[in-house]
């Protein structure tokens, strides 16, 4: 049989080669990143960010107006951060919140999905905390633990 391949066969095959790259055998291994996990990550951390800002504000007994004022941001922006997981805050807003809440700005940027995490899995850990804490009117011990865990992770020095 011939090993040559016609242009016609190749055209038919174009549909075939659309989504993945073939590879076989251990020697061919390449890094495998799950595309779904990649796209989920920012949304997940942003959800935690909004929840955390809400808890941090209430833990400090601040109204939305007061925190917005302290952070020099619009009230509507703070509401969006706390209530809309798809809302993408801008850098200046996160910077203002980090000042008003006295939290390290670089890691708050990571939590807000605005910067790429440099090390460790602290985001996954605080995501798990967020999943366990339920948002009710007053800060519960669980929320306090979530809040403290995020603060601890935010203030931890890189190793």
């Amino acid at each position: 049989m011939t090993y040559g391949i016609s242009a016609e066969w190749s055209k038919k095959m174009l549909a075939f080669d659309e989504h993945v790259t073939p590879g076989a055998g251990a020697l061919a291994t390449r890094p495998h990143v799950d595309p779904d996990a990649v796209s989920l990550r920012v949304e997940e951390t942003r959800l935690v960010f909004g929840h955390f800002i809400n808890v941090a504000r209430r833990q400090r007994r601040l109204t939305i107006e007061k925190l917005a004022d302290d952070a020099d941001i619009e009230v509507g922006e703070l509401l969006s951060i706390e209530q809309d997981p798809h809302y993408e805050p801008d850098l200046r807003t996160v910077w203002g919140l980090s000042n008003a809440l006295d939290l390290p700005q670089p890691k708050l940027m990571e939590l807000a999905g605005l910067a790429v995490p440099k090390e460790g899995h602290w985001l996954e850990e605080v995501t798990r905390y967020a999943a366990r804490s339920a948002p009710i009117k007053d800060v519960t011990p669980d929320e306090q633990a979530f809040h403290d865990a995020v603060v601890a992770a935010l203030t931890m020095k890189a190793t």
Partner: peptide, 14 residues
């Protein structure tokens, strides 16, 4: 086929 690899600039990976 105990090994099949495509040049990295032809990969589709995230």
């Amino acid at each position: 086929v105990d090994y099949l690899e495509v040049a990295p600039w032809n990969w589709r990976e995230p």
